[in-house]
Design a protein around this nucleic acid. Structure first.
Length: 887
RNA sequence: GGGCGAAUAGCUCAGUUGGGAGAGCAUCGGCCUUACAAGCCGAGGGUCACAGGUUCGAGCCCUGUUUCGCCCACCA
């Protein structure tokens, strides 16, 4: 905590942020509580890759989480935010392999064990840099509970799950076509393959009939795969190829005779309507192969190099082979033509190498039964998704889900806990490494070399981080977690799989709510990318504007269902807002410094307080209501705008100005009231702002009078019925209207801001008169009005500046200062506007159906509006007449 | 090809049982008024993409069109 000091004119965030974060860490204010009888609120962080660096998506994601965490902590819930990182199999292995490459080594030079040691070393030294960056963002995670998907506890959970699912028959090993990355030497899940539109060629090949009496043209983008062709497929109802089924095809270059199969998958309209079938190297062909029991000929090895099945092409790289094949086909007259062709090419999402579909033995999870549980949970609203536009996408993805390939042929990750007995061939799957074969007793066991897909361990994150499979107090208190906040692009990678695993293994949802936020784009809506050069680095932005301003900006942008266009100017704007708050506090400090802190109690029962105090408390109450509602409904932008609007435009612009006279005056009671309410409202603002802007609020909080301590553990403001005061709201609206009216007149007539004037108000309503009269001093102070005259009725002088407001006529004699022409033009514009509006209202009121169908309140409202418009029109005419006299 | 979303002030965007068109920035005018010039006061600015429909009443609900964006599946 810091000593009290006089706040400087401008808020300096740098030193403050560091000091408070250190304080929080030292005092462990982020630590979760597990007290009986309290509500629980928990979030598990979407674990960033251990190789990761904080980007703006993380910044948004973690700001929103921290917002909710701090809010619930202040509400007094048992609150836990579990931090951690993901071992990110391929990504991390790549990083270390690159490191090795600089030493001219490959992982094979080290061997598996040494290599893994090396990865752990890397992680100790350089991994998890993002954790410190999250701290810079102000994240209030319970850092003592930081987890890593490869740490001991989580590895235990992974094994436990694998074994359970295997024993239930939900994990199996099978031959299947997978996306193979020849560079990473591993299978990739469907969603780890990115499809980029790529310029390529479409080769049209001439396949001769087996009887030599004709030729069928097939098209392909990968001619080298012809070496593995085991059929040509045509549509069963395609007249052009009737009878070809019985003849067969003589495959060029190899001379193999292959059948012609009839399959509905073939599109008759595409190309010639004939499709070469390579079951070992194309997903669709693989399916066709299964249907027609075709042979699968693998023609490449794991490096993408042609193998012995490729005959004379063996040893050639797949792309070199493609060239050679095309050349040979052309020379032998099998090449019909080559077209330029743009098509989607699958690439490895980690290294961008062109993926090769190929068959291999892999481990799979049967997801159908798991997916059904997830879908059911969402249908039953045991899990709610925000914004709700994602429901359809979720369901359609889950309906089409395929078995999940979970084995990866890399070294960094959870090694699959399965062993094969070298003697009897028994497959053993166990949580602890077996010494001997359970069937024949042989000690000659070899473990699977594959590791699990990184997402397998991530899928367990919500319960593995809480100690599962042990039955811990943490699990009991915090599972299911409250909400998962993440970006929609991993809805399927991760979110859906957590649902499946949580529901299956815990028999309970992993989280009650899912909030999917948008991707952050640049201000023109473009994706941020290094190549475009439009990347906003959160750490740079923080350095320029401060963490609080940055967090406030992200919160203000986080409207549901819309992409976020990040505009740095907005950050600057919110930095000014933070500074505004700082200065409001500075103002308060100047006036309250030496006061008895007990003065705050005046706000407890505002009924006896003057109007403006009751008004600001009423507005405070309304703001509390709005902020809480927005928090509870994940309407983050509403939280930000409510606080911004209230703090700046009600509290600072009106209330602080209003009480200045009292604070500087010599009426003790008035001064005490002002101080008390001022401090009370400011404290409420700080508490409400704290979840978004933790640093500045903490610093200010501790500079206010009295014993303080961290604001983090103060209770979040509750609505207070005693503060709600509609009458005060209405009365203040009236007074503010009068003040604005006089200001408008002054400004338009170019009266110098410091010049004193006289003003008059014609106000037929006695109560309103009384109200204005009792606040004549305040009105005078805020408008530099020396003498305020209030009349029942009267005639506005010709040369007066004039505004009609709330049925009152406010005017200021100006003695020739009026811009007659300008005023007339303005009145004319106004006349047209009123007239148009009046026509609309009158039309409505003449409509019998409207009178019959509309609610009475709406009808009355329209009638009132008509009266008002008519008055305004009449007054407008009077003003015109008045001004004409001056011309 | 299927699905989803967006179109509101010059810019970025709010706008939920259908009844008042709004904010910030930018612009223009005036102010160093003792918390803040990182500020204060005031002003101007919109055919709510287009065309229909439902309704007493539509930015909001329905249909169609246009433009833009995203997701999924990719016809080899």
């Amino acid at each position: 905590m810091s000593e009290k000091y006089d706040l400087p004119k401008a808020y300096e965030f740098g030193e403050v942020e560091k000091r408070w974060y250190d304080y929080w860490m030292e005092h462990k204010t982020f630590a979760a509580t597990m007290e009986e009888g309290k509500e629980s609120f928990s979030i598990v962080i979407p674990p960033p890759n251990v190789t990761g660096v904080l980007h703006i998506g993380h910044a948004l994601n973690n700001t929103l989480q921290d917002l909710l965490i701090r809010y619930h902590r202040m509400k007094g819930d048992n609150t836990l935010w579990v931090p951690g990182t993901d071992h990110a199999g391929i990504a991390t292995q790549n990083v270390v392999e690159r490191q090795l490459a600089t030493e001219n080594k490959t992982r094979h030079d080290l061997g598996r064990e040494k290599f893994i040691e090396r990865v752990w070393e890397w992680r100790e030294e350089k991994g998890g840099a993002i954790i410190n960056q999250l701290k810079r963002m102000g994240a209030s995670c319970d850092w003592d509970r930081e987890r890593f998907t490869m740490d001991e506890g989580l590895s235990t959970a992974v094994r436990e799950v694998f074994v359970r699912l295997f024993n239930e028959g939900l994990i199996y090993k099978g031959d299947y076509i997978v996306n193979w990355c020849p560079r990473c030497h591993t299978a990739l899940a469907d969603d780890e393959v990115e499809h980029d539109p790529t310029d390529g060629k479409l080769y049209h090949l001439r396949y001769p009939y087996a009887d030599g009496k004709g030729v069928v043209i097939v098209a392909t983008t990968r001619p080298e795969t012809m070496l593995g062709d085991t059929a040509v497929a045509v549509h069963p109802e395609d007249e052009r190829y009737r009878g070809l089924h019985d003849i067969g095809i003589k495959l060029p270059l190899t001379g193999r005779i292959i059948p012609v199969v009839l399959d509905h998958h073939v599109e008759r309209e595409f190309g010639t309507g004939a499709l070469k079938v390579t079951p070992a190297h194309d997903r669709d062909d693989y399916e066709i192969g299964l249907r027609h029991d075709l042979e699968r000929i693998k023609i490449m090895d794991d490096h993408g190099v042609m193998n012995e099945n490729a005959g004379s092409y063996a040893g050639l790289d797949r792309f070199a082979c493609r060239k050679q094949i095309v050349k040979d086909l052309e020379e032998q007259g099998y090449l019909e033509k080559i077209e330029d062709y743009q098509h989607a090419v699958g690439k490895c999402y980690r290294c961008a190498t062109v993926v090769e579909p190929t068959t291999s033995k892999q481990w799979f999870v049967s997801v159908r039964p798991l997916a059904d549980k997830a879908v059911q949970a969402v249908r039953d609203e045991r899990i709610k998704i925000y914004p709700n536009t994602w429901y359809n996408t979720f369901y359609s993805w889950m309906d089409n889900i395929r078995d999940w390939c979970i084995s990866r042929q890399i070294w960094w990750g959870h090694r699959i806990p399965a062993w094969t007995c070298q003697d009897c061939g028994e497959l053993i799957v166990a949580t602890t490494d077996p010494d001997v074969c359970s069937k024949c007793g042989s000690s000659s066991l070899s473990q699977e070399t594959d590791v699990l897909d990184t997402w397998f361990s991530s899928a367990l994150w919500p319960f593995s981080t809480l100690g599962w499979p042990e039955q811990t107090k943490e699990l009991q208190t915090f599972y299911p977690t409250s909400v998962l906040i993440t970006s929609f692009d991993i809805l399927f990678f991760w979110v859906a799989r957590m649902m499946m695993m949580g529901l299956h293994l815990m028999d309970e949802v992993p989280f009650h709510d899912v909030y999917l936020h948008a991707l952050v784009r640049d201000k023109h809506g473009k994706k941020m990318s290094k190549s475009t050069g439009n990347v906003i680095d959160p750490l740079v932005t923080i350095g320029q504007y401060g963490t609080d301003a940055f967090r406030f900006t992200l919160t203000a942008f986080a409207a549901q269902g819309r992409e976020i266009r990040m505009d740095e100017e907005r950050v600057e704007g919110y930095r000014r807002f933070i500074n505004k708050l700082w200065n409001a506090a500075r103002f308060a400090q100047m006036h309250i410094k030496d006061s008895d802190p007990s003065i705050i109690r005046v706000a407890d029962d505002p009924s006896a307080l003057p109007l403006h105090h009751r008004w600001i408390l009423s507005r405070t109450n309304e703001t509390i209501r709005r902020v809480r509602a927005a928090m509870d409904g994940y309407n983050f932008n509403d939280i930000a705008s409510s606080l911004y609007q209230f703090t700046w435009h009600e509290f600072c612009d009106w209330y602080l100005e209003w009480i200045k006279a009292e604070l500087y005056g010599d009426d003790d009671q008035a001064r005490q009231n002002g101080r008390g309410v001022l401090l009370c409202v400011l404290e409420n603002i700080l508490k409400m702002m704290h979840p978004i802007t933790p640093f500045v609020t903490e610093e200010i909080w501790n500079q206010l009078p009295g014993e303080r301590g961290t604001i983090m553990l103060e209770s979040f403001p509750d609505e207070s019925p005693a503060w709600q005061d509609a009458e005060a709201d209405n009365s203040m609206d009236l007074l503010m209207g009068v003040i604005s009216a006089i200001r408008t007149i002054r400004s338009e007539a170019d009266v110098h801001p410091t010049a004193k004037i006289q003003a008059s108000i014609i106000c037929p309503n006695k109560e309103e008169q009384e109200l204005i009269r009792s606040f004549a001093g305040a009105i005078g102070g805020m408008t530099r009005t020396e003498h305020l005259e209030i009349m029942d009725s009267g005639v506005v002088p010709d040369d007066a500046g004039y505004v009609l407001v709330d049925g009152m006529e406010v005017f200021v004699p100006l003695k020739g200062l009026i811009d007659v022409q300008g005023e007339l033009e303005k009145l004319d514009r106004e006349h047209k506007k009123i007239d148009k509006e009046l026509m609309r209202v009158v039309g409505k009121l003449r409509n019998e159906k409207f009178l019959k169908n509309a609610p009475e309140a709406v009808v009355q409202k329209e009638k009132g509006k008509q009266k008002e418009l008519e008055t305004r029109l009449a007054k407008n005419a009077e003003s015109v007449a008045r001004l004409r006299k001056l011309q």
